[in-house]
């Protein structure tokens, strides 16, 4: 067993975990953040994407102890108390969600991109979500939504 301390969605947790626990299992099964989805379990699909210290990671490939001292954001931590995040709003407005299984990962990849690059080109957007597979949408409306989100975020400032 190992003791770790990490922040998830702005809340601090002190936990005792097994060495081989994956971050995805800690987030879903122990802390209840089931917006983190498991698609493949081998780092190929991006459904399990979370933001760790500002960068996206596949939480199925990260061991929980590697998150010691880190700050994690899952889809549950994206919205504020009053309203959903502008990226989420843009996904709704554009119709970028079909079955929704890839959506949490897509939105977090978009957030990590827009936090660093507020005015990305379509090509930069495509590159930023290229690790997130989607079987339904053909990606184009997701790219549209992220473009729209960039506008919303600029207007909000």
């Amino acid at each position: 067993m190992k003791k770790i301390k990490l922040t998830v969605n702005k809340k601090e947790y002190m936990l005792e975990i097994k060495e081989d626990t994956r971050l995805i299992d800690l987030l879903r099964d122990v802390l209840g953040f089931t917006g983190v989805k498991e698609g493949c379990g081998e780092g190929e699909c991006g459904a399990c994407t979370v933001i760790m210290d500002g960068d996206i990671v596949n939480s199925c490939l990260v061991l929980a102890f590697q998150a010691d001292g880190k700050e994690i954001i899952t889809i549950e931590g994206v919205e504020s108390e009053e309203e959903i995040h502008p990226i989420q709003q843009a996904f709704l407005d554009v119709g970028a969600v079909q079955c929704g299984f890839c959506t949490p990962g897509m939105i977090l990849s978009a957030k990590a991109l827009l936090d660093k690059n507020p005015s990305p080109t379509r090509e930069e957007i495509r590159a930023a979500i290229s690790g997130n597979l989607c079987r339904c949408t053909g990606y184009n409306k997701i790219v549209d939504a992220i473009e729209r989100a960039a506008l919303y975020l600029k207007r909000g400032k």
């Binding site: 119709g95 079909q98 989607c134 079987r135 339904c136 949408t137 053909g138 990606y139 184009n140 409306k141």
Partner: peptide, 10 residues
Amino acid sequence: EGQIDGGFAM
């Protein structure tokens, strides 16, 4: 449109 994008990708 969403179906067209998705169908094209498939």
